[in-house]
Simulated scan of single mutants.
Amino acid sequence: MPVKYKIDVLAALKDAGYSTYKLRKEKLLGESVLQQIRENVPVSWANLGRICELLNCQPGDILEYDQDAGE
């Protein structure tokens, strides 16, 4: 897939004070979303928005387009 994460999202969330336990416990992100991130599968726009809110960033800070990755 030509769109991929350009940062380690889970590490960035952890650095911002959000462990995977806290994300699940406070219902900020579900386990299926966390698994998608672990597997480098893009998440829904709603979940991407939530991640941007938690990290105080823009989607372009998280995702990048790599034309060669789609070949």
Score class of each variant (00 low, 15 high):
33 V>M: 08
69 A>G: 01
53 E>W: 12
10 L>D: 02
28 L>T: 04
55 L>P: 02
16 A>L: 06
32 S>K: 13
15 D>R: 08
4 K>W: 11
70 G>W: 07
54 L>R: 04
68 D>Y: 12
28 L>G: 01
13 L>C: 02
12 A>L: 08
68 D>F: 13
22 K>W: 15
62 I>E: 05
55 L>S: 00
63 L>I: 06
20 T>F: 13
48 L>F: 04
49 G>K: 07
36 Q>A: 07
52 C>N: 05
17 G>S: 13
20 T>S: 10
14 K>H: 11
58 Q>Y: 09
25 K>D: 15
2 P>D: 14
63 L>H: 02
9 V>W: 15
71 E>P: 10
1 M>Y: 15
39 E>H: 09
16 A>R: 05
49 G>S: 03
33 V>I: 10
41 V>P: 09
58 Q>S: 05
56 N>W: 12
54 L>F: 03
37 I>P: 04
53 E>D: 12
25 K>C: 14
63 L>W: 05
19 S>H: 06
40 N>M: 14
3 V>I: 00
69 A>H: 03
35 Q>L: 11
2 P>C: 14
25 K>M: 15
2 P>R: 15
52 C>K: 04
18 Y>A: 07
15 D>T: 08
64 E>P: 05
68 D>S: 10
49 G>R: 07
36 Q>P: 02
37 I>R: 05
47 N>F: 05
14 K>D: 12
3 V>C: 00
28 L>D: 06
34 L>T: 06
43 V>T: 09
18 Y>G: 03
38 R>M: 13
31 E>G: 09
2 P>H: 15
11 A>D: 13
25 K>F: 15
20 T>W: 15
33 V>P: 04
17 G>M: 14
54 L>V: 04
51 I>A: 00
3 V>H: 03
59 P>C: 00
1 M>K: 09
10 L>W: 02
19 S>T: 07
4 K>I: 10
24 R>W: 14
13 L>Y: 05
62 I>C: 02
58 Q>R: 06
64 E>W: 00
20 T>K: 11
7 I>G: 02
5 Y>W: 08
48 L>Y: 05
32 S>W: 14
59 P>M: 03
20 T>E: 12
58 Q>M: 08
21 Y>S: 13
69 A>D: 03
45 W>T: 15
18 Y>I: 05
21 Y>D: 15
68 D>R: 11
32 S>T: 13
64 E>L: 01
4 K>G: 09
12 A>E: 09
